[in-house]
Amino acid sequence: MYKKIMVPVDLAYVDRLEKALASAADLSKSYGLPVCYVGVTTATPSEVARTPQEYARKLDAFAAEEARSRGLNGHEAKAYTSHDPAVDLDEKLLAAIKDVGADLVVMASHIPGLPEHIFASNAGTVAMHADVSVFVVR
């Protein structure tokens, strides 16, 4: 049914992703799909990594650990830089879907509240604009 799952991850908030990561792993195992973990970082030093290279290494390690502990059917990791992720994260993720060739996105979101009327949530925006299936985990 699907070929590849993409899971956007924020390495600064891995604790909030558990449900989405578990859902992605279940889908991966039941359909036999590889999972691609995608992270977006700034080129300036961030709390996760001091260079984009370091970020990419951490994302690789994270993906490998996920694959090992959850017994995934193949995994990869892809890091992207953004000049202004507070604003253009959605755009990056939409481009990443095409770039990694995923046809299913599993992505964590928070419960929509007032701010969504002003700044749409990332998962909401991705679900609205992506041309592949998006599983928004709340």
């Binding site: 984009p52 253009d88 990056k92 770039d99």
Partner: peptide, 11 residues
């Protein structure tokens, strides 16, 4: 707009 992380060499 930025893109995939590519090798940056040494610093």
């Amino acid at each position: 707009t930025g893109g995939a992380v590519t090798p940056e060499g040494e610093s």
